[in-house]
Design a protein around this nucleic acid. Structure first.
Lengths: 197, 197
DNA sequence: AGCCAAAGTCAACCCGTGTTGACTTTCTTT
DNA sequence: AAAGAAAGTCAACACGGGTTGACTTTGGCT
């Protein structure tokens, strides 16, 4: 009976598994991130992983159940919102391995339907949410999806595909170049859809 | 000795394999597109696939050795180039299964390093090529990579992830919304990099 | 017809995977 | 200290995958 503190006995193992799983899923898509590799990285027997999380699917769902912590754009100067959004997104990939939520999701979404569904939820609920807070309700979905396409295109080319011309640049340069695009999708006038209604 | 025409005896099998492989690789990433599935779709014994192409890697390389047939932007009115590029890209996904080059590459590039390398080549040689033809040489790489990020972000969200707000829209609407972005990456003034040189 | 290479078939091998169950060790509690 | 649960280990199973080799069929040639 060491410290009666909140840290239970050895459910630190659980944490080790989660940390390893996050890293594996961030680096490899669902299929390639093997339970054996996760266990190995966590210095653990593969069977333990299944003891804590009943199966791979459950483990993945646990790892992927995350919050992007998007900033509230209402608190940002209208003209800076594109830049703020962009910087936040890049931060999710550049920072420490903390909230590497997007890497995990994007990596796996291409192969794993559950991951794709989760990504859709994230963009429907979170991205569209923050966008809807600062644009007319009727335009939220349209603008949010345009923004999503540019943000995901950025992380795809820079961190997944690693196009040299993308990886060579520093984050600030990219932000400077692309912020106007996001800003336009957020603020700019878009062509009225055919039957204006 | 039927027709002495160019169609050899039964290397029509080879074609059947390629067609099936193209479809499988377009729908599933490298790992998931099994030789057995390809053979089954081509109504062929799996061993035949390996007889014509020595192994899966070679088959993939053959399937993926393609030309995006990008238009020559010099022949296009300067202000329309973004729109033309965009429409061409969308056409590669919407059209018949003919030149589904991008689907195949993008699907597999996330999981398969060889596919990622191939995609990098495509963008380095082809996309950057057409861009370089109409912008100052020193800016070509930068502008081409920005354009790539938006184009790939579009196809990713619309065809791979299938975000509802993206799939719901018709191609022309998307082109109208996003053409200005591509146009700006092509023509617009970008912030001068720090040490202008 | 009879030969021979090409085309096609079949069955198996080996590997890595998720998952399971029986077993052993370690800790906590009485 | 003894007992019992929790934590951890080990070996195996079933499955699907790429790949291989021996075999059989086909089809054009002399």
């Amino acid at each position: 009976m060491p410290v009666p503190a909140r840290e239970k006995k050895s459910d630190r193992t659980r944490m080790a598994i989660l940390v390893a799983a996050r890293e594996q899923f961030a680096q490899h898509p669902y299929d390639r991130a093997s339970i054996r590799a996760i266990a190995s990285q966590a210095r653990i027997d593969p069977a333990m992983v299944l003891r804590y999380f009943t199966n791979k699917e459950t483990l993945f769902a646990t790892v992927v159940d995350i919050d992007l912590h998007l900033p509230d754009l209402r608190a940002v100067e209208a003209d800076d919102r594109g830049e703020v959004l962009l910087r936040h997104f890049l931060g999710m990939w550049e920072g420490e391995a903390r909230h590497n939520a997007l890497p995990i999701l994007l990596r796996s979404a291409v192969t794993h339907e559950a991951a794709a569904e989760r990504l859709r939820e994230v963009f429907r609920d979170q991205v569209r949410g923050v966008v809807a807070a600062v644009v007319p309700k009727s335009e939220a979905a349209r603008r949010a999806s345009l923004i999503s396409s540019q943000l995901l295109g950025l992380v795809l080319t820079r961190y997944v595909l690693r196009l040299p011309d993308m990886t060579d640049r520093d984050a600030e340069g990219l932000i400077a170049d692309m912020a106007p695009t996001v800003q336009r999708y957020l603020n700019g006038s878009l062509t009225t859809p055919k039957r204006g209604r």
